[in-house]
Design a protein around this nucleic acid. Structure first.
Lengths: 265, 265
DNA sequence: GAAAGCCGTTTACGGCGTAAACGGCAGGGC
DNA sequence: GCCCTGCCGTTTACGCCGTAAACGGCTTTC
C-alpha cells in the first residue's frame, strides 16, 4: 500500500489500560456516575467514532436507558464538553512515573517538550476525540483549543515568565506554541482516520481509478510513496525543536538589550 | 473589553460581494441547481452556523422543500463535501486581479506567501465554514485538510521541485506548510467564533465570575489584556516568514553538499 | 409503618435525514 | 391536436434523534 509507518518506537504511542479491569465489565447492571458516563463516552467515541455517539446508544452501552444519563449530565453538548475536559485532564495524572508530569520540570524547554509530548500522547490515544478538543468553542478567546485548561495556561505562562520571558514574549510564545500543537496533532489524527477509513472500504478496484487520475498530476504521481510515508513523529520533534530555538533566540535578544522589546515581532 | 483588534488594515479581510446582485434575491421561486444549492449552503453556514444547517432549513432558504435538494445532491454529507470543495476552489478565481492567483508567481517563496494569504482570506471570509475544511475526512491521507485539492498539492510540489527542492524536501515542506496553515487559521477562526459567542450572551454579570476566578491564576490575571489582543495577522506573517527561512536554509544546504540529503530531518 | 428522596424507565413530542410514491408541466413524435 | 415521456418539486412516511415530563420502585430516615 501507499501508506506505511516506518518507526515502530513512538514514545507517545502507548497502550491504554484504564486501571485494573477494563473490558471484563461489558454491561454492568447500574450504579451510574458522571465519571463512569464520561469514560464510557470516551470509549464509545474511540471505537465507534464521534458521529455514532447518541444518548440512546451511549445509554445502552452502559446497560441503561438514554434518559438515565440526564440525571448526571445536562445534555449532549455538556457531555461532550465533559469528555474534552476529562481527556485533557489526563495530562496531569502522573500514572507511570512517566515523563509527562507537568508539575516538576527542569527548565522551560523541558517543560514545553513534556507538555507537547503529553498532548501528543493524548491525541494518539484518542484520535477520534481530539478533533472535538479542537472544535469545541473555547471558554475565553485566549484559552486556545489544544490546551483547553486555565490551569494549564497558567502554568505555561508561569513557567516562561519565571524563566525570564517578558509578559508579551510569554504570551507570544503561548500563541506560537498552541498553534504549532494544534496544527500538527490535528493533521496527525486526521491522517490516522483517513488511513482506517480507506482500508475498510475496498470497493471495486480503488487502484484503477487512482492510477488513471494520477496521469494529470505528475508531481503527485512521482512523490506518492513519499507522501504516503508517516514521518509524523520525526516531524513533530523537529518542528518543536525549531520552535524552541526560535523562542530561545527571542529570550536572549530581549535579555541582552534589555529595553522594552520582549515581543516576537 | 478584553478583546480588541488593533489593526484595521488586514489585507486578507475582504468584503464578500458574490457577483452582481446578492441580497436582493431573497426567495426566488425555483430554478434549482447544484451550484446554487452549494452557494446557499455556504451563505447559510456563514450566518447561522454549521449546527443550524439542516436539509429542511436549507431548502426553505431557497424557497423549496427539503426533498427537492436530493435531485442535485446525494445527501447531507456530500453536500458538506461540496461546500468544502467550492470554498477551496475560490482560491483559483482571480476575481480582482488581486495577488491571490496561484498560477503565475515569481519564485517559490512568492508562491507560498500568496497561497498562505489566499487560504487565510478564505478562512476569514468564511470562519464558520473553515472548521469543516479542517475536519472533513481527506480523500487520501496525503491530501491534507487545509489544501484539500489535488490540483493545489500538485502545483505546490511542482513549484518547489522546479525551484530546486528534492522530492523528499518538497514533501517535507508540504507537510510543514500545511501543518502551519491549519494550526494558525483554525485558531484564528475559533477565536472569531469565541468572540461573537461571548458577546451575544451577557447573562448576569460575567465580569464578576471571571474576576473572582482569576485570583487563583496570577499569571493569567496579569497578562489578560495581552492575551485578549488579536495579533493574528502579525503572527501569521511572522510564522510564515520563519517557515520560509527554514525551508530556504534546507534548500541551500542540500544544494551545497549535493548528496542525497534533501530531507528536513 | 409512613413519608421523603433517589434513580432508572416509560411515554411523548417535535425535528432530523431520506426512501418512495405522486403530480403537474414541458417538449417531441404521430 | 393528442398522447407519451421525462423532468422536477411535493407529499407522505419511517426510523432515529435529543429531551421534557410523568411514573414507579427502591432505600433511607424518622
Amino acid at each position: 500500500m501507499a501508506t506505511t509507518s516506518d518507526d515502530a518506537r513512538d514514545p507517545d504511542l502507548v497502550a491504554v489500560t484504564d486501571g485494573p479491569q477494563a473490558a471484563l465489565e461489558l454491561t454492568r447492571p447500574a450504579g451510574l456516575d458522571r465519571d463512569r458516563i464520561l469514560k464510557a463516552a470516551i470509549d464509545f467515541i474511540d471505537d465507534q467514532g464521534l458521529a455514532a455517539l447518541t444518548m440512546r446508544r451511549l445509554g445502552s452501552s452502559l446497560g441503561v436507558e438514554a434518559m438515565a444519563l440526564y440525571r448526571y449530565v445536562p445534555g449532549r453538548e455538556d457531555l461532550l464538553d465533559g469528555v474534552v475536559e476529562r481527556v485533557v485532564e489526563t495530562l496531569f495524572d502522573n500514572d507511570d512515573g512517566d515523563d509527562v508530569y507537568i508539575g516538576e520540570h527542569s527548565g522551560w524547554q523541558d517543560y514545553l517538550v513534556r507538555l507537547a509530548h503529553g498532548m501528543r500522547r493524548i491525541a494518539l490515544a484518542h484520535p477520534a476525540v481530539f478533533p472535538l478538543i479542537a472544535s469545541r468553542p473555547p471558554a475565553a478567546p485566549w484559552v486556545r483549543p489544544p490546551l483547553r485548561s486555565l490551569r494549564l495556561v497558567e502554568s505555561f505562562l508561569g513557567t516562561l515568565t519565571e524563566a525570564g520571558f517578558s509578559d508579551p514574549a510569554a504570551v507570544a510564545a503561548y500563541r506560537a506554541y498552541s498553534s504549532f500543537l494544534l496544527g500538527h496533532l490535528l493533521l496527525e489524527v486526521t491522517q490516522i482516520g483517513a488511513q482506517v477509513s480507506l482500508l475498510d472500504q475496498p470497493e471495486g478496484d480503488p487502484e484503477a481509478q487512482a492510477r488513471t487520475d494520477m496521469g494529470e498530476y505528475p508531481n503527485l504521481d512521482r512523490t506518492e510513496s513519499l507522501l504516503g510515508q508517516d514521518k509524523s513523529a520525526a516531524e513533530f520533534e523537529e518542528s518543536l525543536e525549531n520552535l524552541l530555538d526560535r523562542l530561545e533566540r527571542v529570550l536572549h535578544e530581549a535579555q541582552n538589550n534589555d529595553g522594552e522589546v520582549g515581543d516576537l515581532a
